[in-house]
Amino acid sequence: MPNLPMKKISKALLLSCGLLALSLNAGAHGLAAGSQARLDARIAPCDAAWTVGAVYSAGSKVSYGGVNYSAAYWTQGNNPAGSSGASATAQPWISGASCQQAKAAANDHDANFSPATLQFLKTNTGLDGEQWDNIMKLINKPEQDSLNWTKYYGYCENINDDRGYTIGIFGATTGGPNDEGPDGPALFKEFDAASGAANPSIAGGLARAGAHGNMQGSILKITDSKTDFYKKIEALQNNPAWREAMWHTFYNVYIKYSLQQARQRGFTSALTIGSFVDTALNQGASGDSGTLEGVLSRSGKSTDEKTFMTSFYAQRSKIVDTNQYNQPPNGKNRVKEWSTLLGLGETDLKNADADVVKVTNWTMK
């Protein structure tokens, strides 16, 4: 066999070495990727995030700050990071292992609404699913300390504010000494209607929920035990008629008035409409100086939307951190979410996912 010229031998050797290096590289990368995958698999997924206002019974599981916890006994308002230890420490939370948040899928905003609700919102508000999804994230952060607002269709709690039970994604109430015009009765009537009743009624809606109660004047008095009523509302979480009724009631009570206030000033942006809805929900739509109506009356007459809204946020910030509305500094942070987005130019709340996450990255007290 003839000898190969040196030049050709060098090329062959280089090619061989290159292929070997690539092979070793790929093998090393595969090992690293495999090790990471195995490491990820060993880290437990995070349980549902702890919520400051929720009631947790013994054995309840939550996560906070990348750690899972279980409740040692009934607890409410105790931050797991500061109220935990081993089972023998008598703390309300027992600390567990580090956990890993699930990776978010691509953000399909419309998937958070039924087709009927999407059409209802587009027809009545002019805003689409992406805009309403972002509005609800901004609203839900200071309400439930979460951007996952769709988890709260079945939310029910008595927060001891003399307004009865607080229910659902916008906090409908059954009424009490501090709320003599509750929206909970309307919600149950809408539920009966959405479920197909020919002559919808509050009693019909309660019956469909398996709940018991009666109207005492304008107040809906629930006669079930607190535990039973919580369970009955929780069971409606994925009920399509309940979700549709929730949005119709939300629109009638808060959104419609907020839209009117925006449009009569010539404002149509999603950010302004959402800001007004958040104020109405948190502080009341109309009435005294603390309501949306009252804040608007002190915000000037400018027809320039940015100028007016800058004044509006300043006026709202003066009153939100009160015992009636929010625990400090939650109220000012609540307003800052919206005002920061205004400064960023995110007025249409479209392609705004990263900025919505950024402005809601604050700690609730």
Results as ranks from 00 to 15, higher is better:
residue 4 L to H: 06
residue 8 K to A: 14
residue 8 K to D: 10
residue 9 I to T: 11
residue 9 I to W: 12
residue 11 K to G: 14
residue 13 L to C: 13
residue 14 L to S: 13
residue 14 L to Q: 15
residue 15 L to M: 15
residue 15 L to F: 15
residue 15 L to I: 14
residue 16 S to R: 11
residue 18 G to R: 02
residue 21 A to W: 06
residue 26 A to K: 06
residue 30 G to C: 12
residue 35 S to H: 11
residue 36 Q to Y: 07
residue 36 Q to H: 15
residue 44 A to H: 12
residue 48 A to C: 07
residue 51 T to L: 07
residue 51 T to P: 05
residue 58 A to P: 02
residue 59 G to V: 01
residue 60 S to H: 01
residue 60 S to Y: 00
residue 63 S to R: 00
residue 64 Y to S: 02
residue 66 G to A: 01
residue 75 T to G: 02
residue 82 G to R: 12
residue 84 S to P: 10
residue 84 S to W: 07
residue 86 A to T: 15
residue 87 S to L: 10
residue 87 S to I: 09
residue 88 A to E: 09
residue 88 A to Q: 06
residue 102 A to P: 08
residue 107 N to I: 08
residue 108 D to I: 13
residue 109 H to W: 14
residue 111 A to I: 03
residue 114 S to K: 04
residue 119 Q to V: 11
residue 120 F to W: 08
residue 121 L to N: 12
residue 122 K to Y: 06
residue 125 T to R: 09
residue 129 G to E: 08
residue 130 E to V: 08
residue 131 Q to C: 08
residue 134 N to C: 15
residue 136 M to C: 10
residue 138 L to R: 01
residue 146 S to T: 07
residue 146 S to V: 08
residue 148 N to V: 13
residue 152 Y to G: 03
residue 159 I to K: 10
residue 170 F to T: 11
residue 172 A to D: 06
residue 173 T to K: 09
residue 175 G to Y: 13
residue 176 G to W: 09
residue 184 G to N: 04
residue 188 F to R: 13
residue 196 G to H: 07
residue 197 A to R: 07
residue 199 N to W: 15
residue 203 A to P: 10
residue 204 G to H: 05
residue 205 G to W: 02
residue 208 R to V: 00
residue 209 A to M: 02
residue 220 L to R: 01
residue 225 S to P: 10
residue 225 S to M: 03
residue 234 E to F: 00
residue 242 W to G: 00
residue 244 E to G: 02
residue 245 A to H: 00
residue 253 V to A: 07
residue 257 Y to V: 12
residue 258 S to E: 05
residue 262 A to K: 05
residue 263 R to T: 08
residue 264 Q to Y: 15
residue 268 T to S: 09
residue 269 S to E: 15
residue 271 L to W: 09
residue 273 I to P: 13
residue 276 F to Y: 03
residue 279 T to Y: 04
residue 279 T to G: 03
residue 280 A to K: 01
residue 285 A to S: 07
residue 292 L to F: 10
residue 295 V to C: 13
residue 304 D to L: 02
residue 305 E to I: 05
residue 309 M to S: 05
residue 309 M to P: 04
residue 319 I to K: 04
residue 320 V to Q: 03
residue 320 V to Y: 01
residue 325 Y to G: 00
residue 328 P to E: 04
residue 329 P to Y: 06
residue 331 G to L: 05
residue 340 T to V: 07
residue 341 L to K: 03
residue 351 N to F: 04
residue 360 T to G: 15
residue 365 K to E: 11
